[in-house]
Computed example of a mutant assay.
Amino acid sequence: MVVRRSGPESDPTGGDVGVIGDSVGAGAVGDSVAARRELAAARITEPRLRAAYLHSRWLNARHGRTYFLATRLLPASRRPAVHALYGFARHADDIVDGDLPRAEAAARLTALDTALGAALAGRPCDDPVFTALADTVNRYEIDPGLFTPFLRSMRMDLTTSGYATRAALEEYMHGSAEVIGLQLLPVLGTVCDRASAAPRAAALGAAFQLTNFLRDIAEDLDRGRVYLPADELAAHGVDRELLSWCRTVGHADPKVRRAVADQVERTRRVYRRAWPGVALLRPESRPCVATAFTLYSRILDAIAEAGYDVFAGRAVVGTSRRLALAASTMVRTAALPPPRRAPLRRRQPVYTGPGARSFAVGRSRAGRSNRGGPVGEHIPITSTKERR
């Protein structure tokens, strides 16, 4: 369920309000009745350890609101461990996505790695994030080796601005997303051998992150990064220059819309690979993961409903819609085994008709961008009814 964000706001659905039962203020979340209930259920009684877990819980509620919502669907005893894993991932992410010079960010990642090693070895630590993480790793026997590829991918963000192929992108995502799913498996619990569920958990982490990449294309460009395979974009006539032009003018060229539609469908295939893994989890963990699956996959629907124009505005799922989806998914998966077919919508056509402006006519003779006039034709990519 955890996924590393790629933009400054880690809420995958773009919401900006509090979630069920808690304010997002540090004091309210950190010392709420729900927080104390979670710690009691997990039998966390030592004051310093309680404070560390409360800090991680605040980080989750403040920065990962939809993720925090899904976490609330877990049994109370397991939520502190999820907060601890999120807190560490957020810690590293803030370093690479902040405004630090590259050399300083690299030095901080090295220090983070050293502190992690010390905490996992049982040495005292002043940072509450590491204190909670080390306790979670010990409690649930999480493989410490999973943190090595995670930090490797974090370092890649400091040196890599694009990925030539999907294989190159998948190497990055193994550390930044897939291992997060693997870290969570012991916390969620499985009804089968853990190794049998691992590929599905890894796929779900990848699906969530690919969704973030598509939603955050514009924001990542501002950081000089493109998290989509260059060869797959090139198949639609799209390169970094065209993406940058779209960012400047605030709308997507028709070729970019086609490329994004292709990436949305590729990502939905990853979701389909991941879905059978929900049934492999312990029944009490399924509502949480199924809800996260639904909320993240609906971002793809929002992108499609916007005509695959990720530059005109951020694809979001409204708060009321999030809560309704969470409630309905929880009821379905709590009462019955998850359905065999993944709850995904069908592909929608790419709209390149009236109102769609292209890179070619959106450039002035001097090479400066402008809004241009309507251009292009409607080129459906499926047999479904055209958008009007």
Rank of each mutant, 00 (worst) to 15 (best):
P8Q: 13
E9D: 15
S10T: 13
D11V: 14
V17E: 15
A26E: 11
V29I: 12
V33Y: 08
R37E: 14
A40C: 14
A41Q: 07
A42K: 00
A52E: 00
R57P: 04
G64R: 01
G64D: 09
R65H: 07
F68Q: 02
R78F: 05
P80N: 04
A81M: 05
F88A: 02
R90K: 10
V96F: 01
A103D: 12
G117V: 15
A119W: 01
P124N: 04
D135V: 02
D135G: 06
N138E: 15
D143K: 08
G145A: 09
R155V: 08
M156A: 11
D157K: 01
G162R: 06
S176P: 06
G189Q: 04
V191R: 11
F208A: 05
F213M: 06
G224I: 15
Y227G: 00
L228A: 10
P229G: 10
D231W: 09
G237Y: 09
R258D: 14
R258V: 09
R273M: 08
G277Q: 06
L281G: 00
P283W: 00
P287S: 01
A292V: 10
R298D: 10
A306R: 07
A315M: 07
L323H: 08
L325I: 15
L325K: 05
A327E: 13
A327F: 13
S328Y: 07
P339W: 07
P349H: 03
G362P: 03
S364H: 12
S364I: 12
A366W: 07
R388K: 13
